[in-house]
């Protein structure tokens, strides 16, 4: 992977008018073409929709992309979407980077098309620069001991222990007092139905 020549694809999203209404997306796309190692730039109306995702997958195949930059919205919403998308096309999901042109740019600089477009270019440049150094990552897996510890034998601990045990798991329930029951065992009746506590 290290030896491979970088081939970056940049996908600039209009998000309808959410981004394109403030940012000159065509100018951003043109700018992206000038960045080092960028071999493909695609503009989309909605990158997160199926047609948009298909464009990414297609470009990965066509241009043998080994890095992807999606310039759209916050990664807090769509990072999992695009990670899955590039993974479907055979790229390691950690080789995808996002530039947040919507929440951090078009939506907060609405009156200033020039400055917003400049900032958007910076954000794309920053993402591309970072993408050039991204490395494939593999998520480690560890085995799980199939047992649970429940600390506290009041009504909460009792319910959790019973549910887990009924689901087939071994449960260790630790209670500090000589008997389980907690506060509830000391109550007389319980609202709102006035049933008995024990």
């Amino acid at each position: 992977m290290k030896e491979e020549k970088l081939r970056i694809g940049v996908f600039v999203c209009d998000c309808g008018l959410n981004i394109a209404g403030t940012v000159d997306c065509e100018a951003v796309a043109e700018f992206a073409r000038t960045l080092p190692d960028v071999v493909a730039v695609v503009r989309n109306k909605y990158t997160c929709a199926d047609p948009g995702q298909n464009e990414i997958k297609k470009a990965i195949q066509e241009h043998r992309l080994n890095r992807v930059v999606v310039a759209s919205c916050t990664p807090k919403i769509h990072e999992p979407t695009f990670r899955q998308c590039v993974a479907d096309a055979g790229l390691n999901p950690y080789l995808m980077e996002m530039a947040n042109l919507r929440e951090h740019c078009s939506w907060v600089h609405q009156g200033d098309r020039k400055a917003a477009t400049e900032k958007a270019m910076d954000l794309v440049k920053s993402a591309v620069n970072r993408a050039r150094l991204l490395e494939a990552q593999h998520e480690a897996e560890v085995p799980v001991t199939r047992a649970a510890l429940v600390i506290g034998g009041g009504v909460a601990g009792i319910q959790a222990a019973l549910d887990l045990a009924d689901a087939g798991h071994q449960v260790y329930l630790v209670e500090r007092e000589p008997s389980i029951g907690g506060i509830m065992a000391a109550l007389d009746k319980i609202y709102a139905t006035m049933d008995c506590s024990i």
Partner: peptide, 24 residues
């Protein structure tokens, strides 16, 4: 709880120490 075959109850007991991480 007392009669569940998969619940081991430690009454009059306290957790003394916990080490490790998720799953282990």
């Amino acid at each position: 709880v007392g009669r569940h075959p998969r619940i081991k109850l430690f009454a009059y007991s306290e957790v003394e120490h916990i080490s490790g991480f998720i799953g282990n």
